[in-house]
């Protein structure tokens, strides 16, 4: 084992080798240039592009989420408003209906009353007319009866005397 130490110290391990340095430099530079052109460019640009793509996708997702939240909030507001509106409309409708019903009932009552009074009046009138007609009829009948009775009892001499007396009266009065 001592020999290995001797070789190490004598420079076997640490001896400079210009040829190897030259070849390392040349090889490395050529590999660097080729890989730079061939591989690193496309790979890194692809990576960067993908990174940007992912970032923009995340941004878009965030924006979409914000937008969706805003829309949801708006929808909720609209819904709440619509609910209130609907409630209001129903309430108003109910009130209106109630009012209308009350009004209609009242009107109907009034109408009915009016109609009843009108009917009553008409009935009264009809009654009166009927009574009038009846009275006329009765009068006619009575006159006719009286006529018959009178006709049956009438005497031409008597009448002549009455008319003569009347004419005498008239002539006396003129004088």
């Amino acid at each position: 084992m001592l020999t290995s130490g001797v070789i190490l110290l004598s420079g076997g391990l640490l001896s400079p080798n210009p040829g190897l340095i030259f070849w390392t430099a040349v090889t490395f530079v050529i590999v660097l240039l080729i890989l730079k052109k061939l591989a690193w460019g496309p790979i890194i640009s692809a990576l960067e592009e993908r990174e940007k793509g992912i970032q923009s996708a995340i941004d878009r997702a965030h924006n979409a989420k914000d937008e969706a939240e805003a829309i949801l909030r708006k929808n909720r507001d609209v819904l709440a408003k619509a609910d209130a509106e609907a409630e209001r409309i129903v309430r108003e409708g109910k009130e209106f209906g109630d009012k209308l019903r009350a009004e209609m009932t009242e009107k109907a009552h009034e109408e009915a009353k009016k109609m009843i009074t009108a009917a009553k009046e008409e009935i009264e009138q009809e009654k009166r007319r009927a009574l009038d007609v009846l009275r006329n009829e009765v009068a006619d009948l009575a006159v006719m009866g009286a006529e018959k009775i009178i006709k049956a009892n009438l005497d031409a001499d008597m009448q002549k005397k009455i008319v003569d007396s009347m004419i005498q009266d008239l002539s006396s009065k003129r004088n």
Binding site: P18, G19, T24
Partner: peptide, 25 residues
């Protein structure tokens, strides 16, 4: 006057370079 022999390690460097170029192409 410079010894630029292709030694064992130079060959290994070239093998490495070839593998790298193949893989990354």
């Amino acid at each position: 006057g410079f010894d630029i022999s292709v030694t064992k390690h130079v060959v290994m460097l070239w093998v490495v370079s070839a593998i790298l170029l193949v893989i990354f192409s």
